[in-house]
Design a protein around this nucleic acid. Structure first.
Lengths: 187, 187
DNA sequence: TACATCTTACCGAACGTACGGTAATTTTTA
DNA sequence: TAAAAATTACCGTACGTTCGGTAAGATGTA
C-alpha cells in the first residue's frame, strides 16, 4: 500500500469549500487537513507559506475556473450573445450551488486576512464587470448602459446571495438570475 | 482621577465596530477589551455568557437603533412618503459610514458562529423587507411591486457594500442609494 | 540490468502563542 | 459599609507552524 498523491484539483476544491464557508480566520488547519485528506504537516509541504498560501491558491484556482467556464464562453463570438448569457447564468447558478454557497470574495473580505487578498479580490471583481460590459456591448447597448448593467449584475448576484443566506431560501438568488437575464434580453 | 463607568451605549458601539469588521470568529476578546476600555474579566462581568452574549447584545443594540432611526421614521404618517424615503436613505448612508463599514448581518453569517445568529439575522432582514414594503404601498405601488422593490432595495444595499469593499470605492454604495431613490420616486 | 542516490509526498509529535474563559482581589459607587 | 464594577493573575485548550523522519517513486551510473 503506497502513498497516493493527492490531486491538486481535489486538494484545492477541498480548501475552497472551507474558505468559502468560514472565511480566512474561521478556516482552521485541522479542518483543512480533514477535507483534503492530508495531515497538517503535509499541507505545509504543498504550501510552505501556510494558511495564507492556501487561501491564495484557492483564489487563483477559482479565478482560473471562472476564466475557463464563464469568461471565455461569455466572449466566444461563435455563439450568439443571448445564448452566451444564458449559458453563463447556468454556470453561475451551479457554481454557487443554487445560492447555498458563499462567494469567495465575500468570505475573504472580512478582517483579519482581508488585507492579504484585497488586491486580488479587486482585480477579480473588475474582471467580472469587464466581462459583462463586453456582453452588453455585444447586445448593442451603449457603453454607459453596458457598464451600468454589468455593475448591477454583480450587485444582484452578491446581494441576493446575502439574502439567500440570511433568510435560508434560495429563491432570492434564483430570482436575481432571472432578473439579470430579462434586463439584458427584454428590450 | 477616578475611573469612569463605561456607558452601555459606548460599550455596545465598541463591540459592534469589531464584530462588524471581523465577524464572530475573527473578533477576539483582546481587541474587544481594548475597544471598550474594559479588561476581559470586566467584559465577563457585563456579559456572563461571554463572546456569544456580546455578539447577541450587539445584534439587539443595532436592531433597536434601526427600529428607532430607520423603521419608525419610515412609517411615520405625519411625514410624506417621499420625504420619509429620503430621510431613511440618509440614515442608511451614515450608518454604513458611506459604504466603508460592513453590515452586521453579513459579518455574522460566516461560520463558525453563523448558527448562533441565523434566526436573529433572518428576522432582522425580514423586518427590513417589511419596512420597505409598507413604503411602497404608501407610495401607491401594488403589493407585488412593493414586495419586489423592497427585496431589490436590500439586494442593492448588500450587493453594493460588497463591491464597495472589494473595489475600495464608495461610489457603488452611493450610486445604489441613488438608484433606490429613483426607483421609488420616478414613475 | 542492478544498485545507489536523489527527490517527492507524506506524517507523528511537539513548539510557542493566542485564544476564550475564571477566581481572587481591589476599587468605585451609593 | 455593603454591593457593584473593574482589575490582576491565572488556566486549559486549540491554534498555526515546525521538526525529524519514513515510504516509495524517479533518476543516475556501472
Amino acid at each position: 500500500m503506497g502513498k497516493q498523491k493527492i490531486l491538486d484539483s481535489d486538494l484545492l476544491e477541498g480548501l475552497a469549500k472551507v474558505f468559502r464557508s468560514k472565511g480566512y480566520d474561521g478556516a482552521n488547519l485541522s479542518e483543512l487537513s480533514i477535507v483534503t485528506n492530508l495531515k497538517k504537516a503535509s499541507l505545509y509541504h504543498r504550501f510552505p507559506d501556510g494558511k495564507k498560501e492556501m487561501a491564495e491558491a484557492v483564489l487563483i484556482h477559482i479565478e482560473e475556473w471562472v476564466d475557463k467556464n464563464i469568461f471565455d464562453p461569455l466572449e466566444n463570438k461563435k455563439v450568439s450573445p443571448k445564448k452566451r448569457l444564458k449559458n453563463a447564468l447556468i454556470e453561475i447558478y451551479n457554481s454557487y450551488n443554487g445560492g447555498k454557497d458563499n462567494c469567495i470574495f465575500r468570505a475573504l473580505s472580512l478582517e483579519p486576512g482581508s488585507e492579504l487578498f484585497q488586491e486580488k479580490i479587486g482585480i477579480g471583481i473588475q474582471k467580472w464587470i469587464s466581462a459583462f460590459e463586453k456582453l452588453g456591448l455585444a447586445l448593442n447597448f451603449t457603453e454607459e448602459k453596458s457598464h451600468e448593467y454589468a455593475v448591477q449584475t454583480l450587485i444582484d448576484i452578491q446581494g441576493s446571495l446575502v439574502l439567500t443566506k440570511g433568510l435560508n431560501s434560495t429563491k432570492f438568488f434564483e430570482n436575481a438570475l432571472k432578473g439579470i437575464e430579462s434586463r439584458y434580453l427584454e428590450r
